[in-house]
Every structure is written in C-alpha cells, then in structure tokens.
C-alpha cells in the first residue's frame, strides 16, 4: 500500500470539492442566500463541458464555456429569483429545490440518461510513477490548477475592494449603501463567481466524480457536507472542510474498504458533535 499516493488523491479530491463548495459557503454563510441548486450548477457545467469536448473544441475551452454559462445562469437566478426573497431561508430552500428538479429533468431530456465520460486532456491522459505507484497525471495537474484558484480567491476576498464590500455589506448593509454602493449588483457578481466555479468543477470533476444524470444531487450532498464540516462563511473554512472530507474519505476507503459507506458521514457527525459551528468560522 502506498500511502503517499492516497494522500495525494485525497488532496486532489478535496481541492475539487473546494471548488464546488466555495460558492455555497460564501453565498450562504456571508450573504445568507441558500442555493440548493448548487448541485444543478455543477451538472450544467459538466454536461455543457461534455458537449463542448464532443464538438472537438478541447478541454480548456470546455472549462471556460462551462464557467461562463453557469456564471450567467447563477447571476440570472440571483437577480431575478433569489433577490426577491432575500432573508427568507425557507422560501429559498423551496425555490432552489424546484429549480434543481427542473434542471435535472432538462438535462435528462437533452443529454439522455446514459452516463457520459469526460476524458482528461490528451497530454494528461496517462499515469505517472509517483513514489513507486502509478498515479494519473490529470489528478496532479488538478491539484496545481485548484491551488492557483485557491490563492486567487482568498486574495480577492481578503485583500481587494470587492472582497471588502462583500464582507462589509453583510455586517452592515446600510452603511455600505450610504457610501453609494449598490449591493444588489455586488451580490449578483459574487453569486455568479460561485456559480461559475461550480460549473468549472463540473468539467474538472468529470474524470473523478463522473458526468451523469443524478450527479446534481450527489454533488449537492457532498457540498453541503463540506460546508457543514468546514464552517460557514469563509473560503478558508470551505478549504479546510473540503480537504478534511477528501482525505478522510480517501484514506478510510483505502485502509478499510468495508467501511466505505460511512467514510463521509461518520466523520461529519463526529465533527458536528465536537464543534457544531464547524471547524472554522468567520469572525465578523
């Protein structure tokens, strides 16, 4: 058994989960907008990306188009559906589950129920010798790409004017408005970015999590687990939660394949018993 490779795999899966969950953590934890259609955004990205690749435009183009399409979808959803019911979490849950069901049926009718396969880009479609074991080159590349995105996102959120406005808007939205800033559009931008990341993760996650009707529910559950474990409202929390889930899941399944069915939820329960607020919490 080569544990180094399993740790690498846990990190790769964890970082992928971060890309999926980052938007959910920030929009819910910071903006108080609960979007259960987050899994639907992943699926839209995944299937749009699949079609772009099938059309021969390549993996990179698929990532960009998936990001753009889901970001636009997320922006429209925030501006025309969710903005009207801000502050009402129950209404948000019902509305976004409704959108999720519609998306799921639409995907089924457009792409059909057969599972799809998104192959890695050709130059990464091989396995490398890593510490004496074979490991897919694609997963190594995914780690690098995701780490770059983590750095960019944390920088934007903590160091830029946009990040400051988002954080300030949540703590005291009246004061922000007094400065002449229209929060409506700030929220739309943030929501679009989170949605775009989920869509991007749909393409990047194809070779790992799969591209199939029903992924929208499976991925939503994973994203909720990550956000609950990590603690709401910060990118750092989502990162800690995602790496925790990726590593614990990967290592448990390697060591005890028979416990595979529990490898995500038992750790989640243990974390919630010890720290009901999650591992990391944003301190306003």
């Amino acid at each position: 058994m080569n544990w180094t490779v399993q740790v690498l795999n846990g990190v790769a899966v964890g970082l992928l989960l971060f890309l999926i969950a980052a938007g959910l953590s920030v929009t819910f934890g910071v903006m108080r907008v609960l979007n259960l259609n987050h899994g639907g955004l992943y699926a839209i990205g995944a299937f749009v990306g699949y079609s772009v690749i099938q059309a021969g435009w390549g993996f990179g183009t698929a990532c960009l188009i998936a990001f753009a399409v889901t970001a636009l979808f997320g922006a429209l959803q925030q501006r025309f559906l969710l903005w009207r019911i801000r502050g009402d979490e129950l209404a948000q849950v019902l509305l976004t589950i409704g959108v999720l069901l519609v998306i799921s049926d639409l995907i089924d009718s457009i792409w059909g129920s057969d599972p799809k396969r998104v192959p890695p880009p050709a130059f990464l479609d091989e396995s490398l010798d890593v510490f004496g074991s074979r490991f897919p080159a694609y997963r190594l590349a995914l780690i690098v790409v995701a780490l770059v995105l983590v750095v960019v996102l944390v920088y934007v959120m903590d160091k830029t004017r946009l990040g400051a406005i988002v954080r300030a808007g949540v703590d005291d939205d009246e004061l922000v408005r007094l400065h002449g800033i229209d929060l409506k559009w700030v929220f739309v931008v943030v929501f679009a970015a989170g949605a775009g990341l989920a869509g991007l993760a749909g393409v990047l996650g194809g070779p790992i999590l799969g591209t199939y009707v029903g992924a929208e529910y499976d991925v939503l559950t994973l994203a909720l687990v990550v956000v609950v474990i990590g603690g709401l409202g910060s990118l750092q929390g989502a990162l800690v939660g995602a790496l925790f889930v990726g590593l614990v899941d990967s290592l448990t399944k390697t060591a005890f394949p028979g416990l595979a069915a529990f490898s995500i939820y038992v750790p989640m329960i243990l974390v919630l018993v010890a720290r009901p607020q999650g591992l990391l919490v944003r301190h306003p």
Binding site: V5, Q6, N9, S133, S250, K253, P257, A260
Partner: peptide
C-alpha cells in the same frame, strides 16, 4: 465491495 454510486474508485484501486 464498493458502495453503489461510488464516485471515486481511487482508494479501492490502491
């Protein structure tokens, strides 16, 4: 034995 709906088989393949 991998649970139905297993997404990542990497740990089992190891």
């Amino acid at each position: 034995f991998a649970p139905l709906g297993t997404q990542d088989f990497a740990p089992f393949l190891a």
